[in-house]
Every structure is written in structure tokens, then in C-alpha cells.
Simulated assay, not measured.
Amino acid sequence: MKSTLREAQALLTAQNRFAEVLRHGSMSVEWYAPIGHDPQQPHEQDELYVVVSGSGSFLNGEVTQPFGPGDVLFVPAGVEHRFLDFTPDFGTWVIFYGPQGGEKGQE
């Protein structure tokens, strides 16, 4: 299975700023490129973000940190998180994986 960045970006619409491009077992891979603000709510699985373009700040629980291209960000299941003050060219791969509720105790 393979998906390219160009294919993922082509799936986005003005109303839908994420697109699932791969799924296998508990893992799914999405392309995410919000416009203006990030309306995310906590998710039921652990997730990784691999930032491809853009920069800004990332709220992960009670911690806010800067991000930019090439950064990898981890968010445990159920934790409040969102991208803040990001540039218009922001886009990231999102990888959800593992059981609902996350892999607690397996760090």
C-alpha cells in the first residue's frame, strides 16, 4: 500500500481538511491541513504527527511547544491537543494506532 502527498492533498476540500489515505488493522494514516484554526478534540487512539510543511505552536495537554517541518509529535489517547498560530502552508501526516484508550503502561 502506498499513498503520495500529492494524492492526499487532492482529497482535501474546503469543508473537509483531513483525508484518510491508508488503513491496516488498528493503524490509519491521514493527511491534515486545517485552515485558520484547528478544531480537534481528543482522540480514542494514540497518534503521531509528522509535520511536512508550515510552523506554529502545538498544545499537547498542558504543554505548548513550537513546531516546524520534520518534527514528530506524539499525543496519547484522550489528551487535549491542537495546532495554534500556524502558517497558511501547514500540513501534517497523522498516524493513529493501537487500542482505543491508547497503550497505557507500555511506554
Score class of each variant (00 low, 15 high):
E30I: 00
M27K: 11
Q106C: 02
D38I: 01
A77L: 02
E44K: 11
G68S: 14
G91N: 08
V75R: 03
P66V: 07
P39F: 08
S28I: 05
T4R: 11
S55M: 07
Y97Q: 13
I95E: 15
G36C: 06
S3N: 07
F96C: 12
L59F: 03
T4M: 09
Q45G: 04
V72M: 15
W31V: 09
P34T: 01
S55A: 12
T4K: 12
V52G: 00
L59G: 00
F90L: 12
Q41W: 08
P39T: 07
G91E: 12
L59S: 01
S3Y: 04
P88E: 07
P69A: 15
F83I: 02
G25C: 05
G68E: 03
R23C: 14
P66G: 08
D71T: 02
S3T: 09
I35V: 14
N60V: 02
E7Y: 07
D46S: 07
Q106H: 11
Q65L: 14
F58C: 06
Q9T: 11
F90G: 05
E44Y: 10
R82V: 00
F18V: 06
Q40D: 11
V72S: 14
S55P: 02
H24D: 14
D38C: 00
E80V: 00
F67P: 03
S53F: 06
Q45T: 03
F90A: 07
